[in-house]
Design a protein around this nucleic acid. Structure first.
Lengths: 99, 99
DNA sequence: TTCTACCCATAGATAACCTATATATACGTT
DNA sequence: AACGTATATATAGGTTATCTATGGGTAGAA
């Protein structure tokens, strides 16, 4: 969900995705390479992102990932599910929270 | 965290914990037996809960779990971590959420 | 030339989940 | 008396996703 959300802002390469999530979350969320690249492969397989080799601003070759239409749809699904789950956890935690 | 939170309200047996979480979350969160009982074993090993065989209101033998002092402390730690993580995810999702 | 930041990718260990299964009892219904 | 349902505990095995560790490689600054 976080990767899809990041790519929904703008196409980006793997390293940039990791940095973006890390920075926006104030270093709380860190996506390691061993999680990130397999995750991107899964997103490719599902057709939620597409990839192109391009050059970065710093003149390096990098694989830029772009959200597809299906990816945008999936992001919506995951956001909804996430919010439902968070709300549900909130209900479990809320009851007698002061105890 | 949800199990510890449930036991923080009152000692309860495994089946009761599962029902409580399911009901409080409006059926969104379902803890299966294959997740619940291993999780309870882990909580026992950590010393966060203790267990006693007792009789239920319906006259069945059941293992009642009670939160220990260490368990209450751990619950606090996990609640804090959870809130931090949710806040961090919120920051990642918030930016350009409308896009 | 050496170091740091940038960039991709996989292997292997670890951890936790779910499905499926086994066992067993209380109680109401047929 | 037999049967079904809800109650109750527990483990085996498969799946999934994570992290750690590793390997390869480039641009630019010190």
């Amino acid at each position: 969900m976080l990767i899809l959300k990041t790519l929904n802002r703008a196409p980006l390469h793997g390293y940039g995705i990791a940095l973006s999530i890390k920075r926006l979350s104030d270093d709380v969320l860190t996506v390691e390479e061993g999680s990130l690249y397999p995750a991107l492969q899964r997103l490719l397989l599902q057709g939620w992102v597409k990839a192109e080799w391009k050059m970065t601003e710093t003149n390096r070759r990098a694989r830029f990932y772009t959200l597809t239409a299906a990816g945008r749809k999936q992001l919506g699904v995951e956001l909804t599910q996430f919010e439902q789950m968070i709300a549900a956890i909130g209900r479990v935690l809320q009851d007698a929270q002061e105890a």
